[in-house]
Design a protein around this nucleic acid. Sequence first.
DNA 1: ATCCAGCAATGAGCCAGATCATTTTAGCTT
DNA 2: AAGCTAAAATGATCTGGCTCATTGCTGGAT
Lengths: 244, 244
Amino acid sequence: MFESTARHLDPLPSGHPCQGCEARGQAICGILDCENLAVFKRLGSTMRLCAGQTLFREGDPATRVFTLTRGSLKLSKLLPDGRRHVVGFMYAGDFLGISVDDEHAFTAELIEDAQLCCFPRSRFDAFLADHPLMEHELYRMAAHELSAAQQQLVLLGRKTATERLASFLLLLAERADRLAGEKTSVIDFAMSRADIADYLGLTKETVSRIFSAFRAGRLIRLRALNKVEIVNRPALQQVADCQG
Amino acid sequence: MFESTARHLDPLPSGHPCQGCEARGQAICGILDCENLAVFKRLGSTMRLCAGQTLFREGDPATRVFTLTRGSLKLSKLLPDGRRHVVGFMYAGDFLGISVDDEHAFTAELIEDAQLCCFPRSRFDAFLADHPLMEHELYRMAAHELSAAQQQLVLLGRKTATERLASFLLLLAERADRLAGEKTSVIDFAMSRADIADYLGLTKETVSRIFSAFRAGRLIRLRALNKVEIVNRPALQQVADCQG
DNA sequence: ATCCAGCAATGAGCCAGATCATTTTAGCTT
DNA sequence: AAGCTAAAATGATCTGGCTCATTGCTGGAT
């Protein structure tokens, strides 16, 4: 039922710069053996940021790439008249820097306190050139994101508001499943209703109303504002898949 | 003003299997020298298909990858209740097979008579493993497509019908520019109003109405049903960029 | 030239989701 | 525990784009 995310991780000797990193299993650097990993890690530095801070803005020169090792952030694009669209969320283990452009195509803002590994782009690219395995992994990741983006195109192009929110909740649930290694029913998230709306092409009012409708229909329960228990997952799945 | 698409192309000796291919300048195989190109080309075969034919369907095992060398096709996804979304169009030089999945995520249907180079996936992957330069090129392409998809997310999530169609026409115009090597004003396309609608998250009626509105506003002229002359490009650009 | 079939254009009415306004709640701080 | 603030929920109304129906084209076959 679940894709195995467990892959072979070279055990790290004590004193290794990546010791204690919980994101390695998910991140691109996870494919490196401990020696190469140490070399890689030393190309860059670690940084911590707080919820609400901006990592970079749309249009900024893209001089660095990042691996998020803790926390989460949102990627958004702004239209000249103020309309905003969230193109994605990132979580621990995600890589930020799949691009051939020298300007950032979106703004990255923290939605939780976070920790990142940060690499000068030039050094990162040079490392890639010497490590085809890593470039391959990056390609896999890009292909995966492209496929996810295409599903999101269908969601935005053809699904109703209700279907969109159901799809979104299930996406979060699947992520939680993957992390837990088993079916879960409680999902915790850091983004606001407005962020969700901007991700789903809706307004925050509509998102609120549909949360309420799902609650009324006993599909979910709100444990807290940002903590949803999925009560009837099959039904939610039916809605998301446009079969309800 | 224009990105140079001209890149160094190793000249081909007569008798080379890729002699006469007009797509090489755009395609991933364009980075190969003539010797490697010949090896590569012999991994696969050439096929011709007619407008309307289906290359593969969503869910089919993805056993082959393709380079489109002539013509154009559309990629679409179908919801269980019949709603359809076109996730993209492909033209000569485009590569079809950026994926790590073993099933096709969408249906590919020809919208013009076309010619393709077609490679068994296993052989293609093996070739990639031996040619990091080609894998790098594929990564670049994936990154580029991802960025295009993200722009499309904004279009579908936040733009009005009018802005969507303006953006679409300009996308076609930019493509025509790139091919011609200069600013052009007449664009030819093979897709129907319904295909455009399914690409932009609209109905064909709305697409028709907006074509008419653009005509009435002297932004475009219809040379034929599928041949548009862009009369006032700056104005169209303003609409597309949400400044009008 | 004329017929025909399928696409495109247009028209009338409707509705899902937006907008604008208000109330409620959760999570703080003191 | 009371008070405060920002977020969320709810309500009332409006509207852009959809739906359904009709008419108009156009390009290929006879």
